[in-house]
């Protein structure tokens, strides 16, 4: 598997806030991600994805979502073969040091704080995709 460009990626977004969903979707579109490759869920995506037969390259996972927290969803995604090769990124406003340390320790591939810095978004995602991402904790 060669280097993957953002533009070729299939992306899953789990985000309960409508504004934030629009922000990340549109920012991805600026980086040429195709609309048909973007899947957006307001909450735990797995129950709604039962019949969906797709692999995902990138998952943007909010941490504070109703009913189920992002960490638990992360653990379930890791059990699902469709996410075997996915880069799962914590996209959250929980940015305290201990929070970030937790994302790193449970196995997230990266962390993007809110508000998203649009200017560095592409570099961050690219670093995560080619596994040169460095945790800031």
């Amino acid at each position: 598997m060669g280097k993957k460009e953002i533009a070729d990626c299939t992306v899953l977004i789990v985000e309960d806030d409508e504004n934030n969903r629009i922000v990340i979707e549109r920012l991805l579109k600026i980086h040429k991600v195709k609309q048909e490759n973007i899947y957006v869920f307001e909450k735990d995506p797995l129950p709604q994805m039962l019949t969906l037969k797709r692999n995902f390259d990138i998952v943007f996972l909010d941490i504070q979502i109703p009913d189920k927290d992002g960490i638990s969803i992360f653990k379930e995604l890791k059990e699902d073969p469709r996410f075997l090769n996915s880069k799962i990124i914590a996209l959250t406003a929980n940015v305290m040091k201990q929070d970030v340390a937790q994302y790193k320790s449970v196995g997230f591939h990266g962390f993007i704080p809110k508000p998203i810095d649009a200017y560095s978004l592409k570099d961050t995602i690219t670093a995560i995709l080619d596994e040169s991402y460095i945790w800031q904790v």
């Binding site: 504004n19 922000v23 929980n94 940015v95 305290m96 998203i116």
Partner: peptide, 21 residues
């Protein structure tokens, strides 16, 4: 402080990035 930080960042994400878009 943690709560304040979280609650302010969410709308800021919209403000900053919609302006950017």
């Amino acid at each position: 402080l943690a709560t304040m930080s979280h609650e302010l960042r969410t709308p800021l994400n919209s403000i900053i990035n919609f302006a950017f878009l």
